[in-house]
């Protein structure tokens, strides 16, 4: 009896490992991603429509900011995704750096332009919000400055990646850069709590629960999930393309693409 119990987790673990190894195989990933992308994409589109409708039509105006606060339905999901994409990029880079798994390198590289776009979107929408509410497009407080540094980290990653011809060498160099930049993530997140900033403190994740009325919070969360799904769909599209590019000389690519 005891023996059998010991055997079960071992096989489960082994099955999990086999799955990981299969996932890391380019062909399996290519096919799995191909099946997942439409699901992620359509779910993102539906949630985006629902979130925008809820946020721009159904949600009431704010007691202080009137209708101008509605930019949070873009600004907050974009800002959160700018951090999430970086953590995903650095995490995949870390796996690629230590275990030299090609697929992890591919995923890390696919995250960079998406994360940079989310960061730029967060900075631009924040700037448009800042002028009517604060009275300035830009201030050099800790939150805004650290988010700008994040944009430069993404741009540096992309530039470094473009500067190195060999894909494997480029992956190693960019992973190190991504890991160096990880330090900026907690700084951005906690900047509004550690230092006096003009940017307001956290609304959703804080002690005592979110300080936002429910009919504003629901569309906000819909938008957050929509942005996340959109990110996964786009990341998989990019990763899939790069897998094809990298494996261009292998038999399975010729089989998939249908060339002799």
């Amino acid at each position: 009896m005891a023996q059998r119990e010991a055997v079960i987790p071992a096989t489960t673990t082994r099955r999990l490992w086999t799955w990981f190894h299969r996932l890391a195989s380019p062909r399996y990933f290519y096919e799995l991603a191909g099946r997942l992308i439409p699901w992620f994409g359509w779910a993102a589109a539906v949630l985006l429509a629902a979130g925008l409708y809820g946020g721009l039509w159904l949600a009431p105006p704010d007691y202080q900011q009137g209708d101008a606060y509605r930019i949070i339905f873009i600004h907050v999901p974009a800002a959160w995704m700018s951090l999430f994409a970086y953590v995903a990029m650095a995490g995949a880079g870390f796996i690629g750096l230590v275990w030299r798994i090609k697929l992890a390198e591919v995923v890390a590289r696919a995250c960079a332009p998406l994360g940079a776009s989310f960061t730029l979107l967060a900075l631009c929408t924040g700037s448009l919000w800042g002028k009517p509410m604060w009275g300035a497009y830009w201030v050099w407080d800790a939150r805004l400055t650290s988010e700008l540094v994040l944009l430069f980290l993404y741009l540096g990653y992309i530039a470094l990646d473009a500067a190195i011809e060999d894909r494997r060498k480029a992956a190693r160099a960019t992973s190190v850069l991504a890991l160096v930049g990880v330090v900026d993530i907690p700084i951005i997140h906690y900047s509004v709590e550690w230092w006096h900033t003009l940017h307001q403190g956290p609304t959703v994740f804080k002690l005592g629960g979110p300080s936002i009325s429910l009919d504003m919070l629901v569309p906000l969360l819909l938008m957050v999930v929509a942005f996340k799904l959109f990110f996964f769909a786009m990341m998989l599209v990019r990763a899939r393309t790069e897998v094809l590019e990298r494996e261009v000389n292998s038999a399975w690519v010729r089989e998939v693409v249908g060339e002799p």
Partner: peptide
């Protein structure tokens, strides 16, 4: 030379605020 407004992190409809 410049005055900036800091808004709080609370969002609610005007009726609720009242």
């Amino acid at each position: 030379t410049q005055v900036l407004a800091k808004h709080d992190s609370t969002y609610m409809p005007p009726e609720v605020a009242r």
